[in-house]
Design a protein around this nucleic acid. Structure first.
Lengths: 202, 202
DNA sequence: GTCTATATTTGGATAGAC
DNA sequence: GTCTATCCAAATATAGAC
């Protein structure tokens, strides 16, 4: 029956070109800004004219969507690669370091995934599901540590978002805020530990 | 000598129209987004055609610049109106509540002043000086409380920025994060107090 | 000061030849 | 699949009449 799926060289090359287009799109968005991305620029950088891109993506938004999905997958893969210790404080640091690094390593990706700043762009439902999966992963990990109430989760995400936002907007590429991650997590951990003790005792 | 400066009705009306244009610009930016502001829309809303705006502002960037300056002045005026108590923790809460409210009350103003998101827009030097004055005001107030080292300042601004960013991007108009301000300040205050004690004792 | 008319640029998208 | 040619729309800005 020759069950081996026969490699389709044509569609393989097609996928390769799509990947190349996305690569270029990331690079241009990094220099010109996410909103400054134009099909002309992308096409020129891959050695095409703008209309040819439509053989690979149905629209400019489709390119944004593919970038969004790629960013989500990168987050999930990186998170899978983490190894946790079982110690709550340590694991909290590991998780927070990962999130802040993930964001500051690629500000454009951060902007695309976590700020909704492209006018008129909404990820497709399938892509959005990937995004939800990422948030869910984080939430589940925090639940293992014992953080489940909304207020505590929100305070933690605020701390992470704040370090990230300050680093990106005030000193992109630097470490002035990222180096505070461990200290910030200790501060947070002491706070919720204290609160638990207080509500247990009386 | 008739030293009284004679009122110039013409330039008074001119200033009035400029103010009206700015008012409309804020409103449109609020609905269409800061980058979605167009001269056509602004002109129509004040009952003019687009070219007529050039009698009041030299360019679109000049309008952004005037909005930026106005936002800075609002921050300074609001800060002047605060009354502090002399108690460090209380005053820290007052300052933080003010900053977070100032930002979340008007997300567009926040975006214009604290995120650099308009492609190609830079405030003029005079306007930028107003912005620096605002940051300086905050820094001086924190110095009175005894917070002067860079790391502590940065951690505090990260907490404020994080609560603000989360509130604006995840629940604009709500209070899910702003209501955590006092708790966050307590957490921060306990942290730096603890650290001071630790570095004093040994 | 305000208008109409227009220049200019830019960028997404489509038609149709090859 | 890629190209040229073109369309269409939006938006800033200027010229010059009134």
């Amino acid at each position: 029956m020759l069950g081996e799926p026969i490699r389709d060289r044509r569609s393989e090359r097609h996928e390769g070109t799509k990947a190349e287009i996305l690569e270029v799109a990331w690079r241009i968005a990094g220099t010109e800004g996410l909103a400054g991305l134009t099909l002309r620029d992308v096409a020129r950088a891959v050695g095409m004219r703008a209309p040819s891109l439509y053989s690979y993506f149905a629209s400019k938004h489709a390119i944004y969507d593919a970038m969004f999905a790629q960013g989500c997958r990168e987050f999930l893969q990186g998170h899978d690669a983490l190894t946790f210790t079982g110690d709550p404080l340590t694991d909290l640091k590991i998780g927070m370091r990962y999130f802040v690094s993930f964001c500051t390593d690629n500000p454009v990706r951060y902007q695309l995934l976590y700020q909704r700043t492209i006018p008129g762009f909404e990820p497709t439902p399938e892509t959005f599901a990937l995004s939800v999966a990422g948030l869910d992963r984080m939430r589940r990990q925090l639940a293992e540590i014992g953080i489940t109430d909304e207020g505590s989760l929100d305070l933690l995400t605020a701390v992470g978002a704040g370090l990230t936002a300050q680093q990106i907007s005030n000193e992109p590429g630097g470490t002035r805020w990222t180096r505070l991650v461990d200290e910030a997590v200790e501060m947070y951990f002491a706070h919720i530990s204290e609160r638990r003790k207080a509500s247990d005792e009386p």
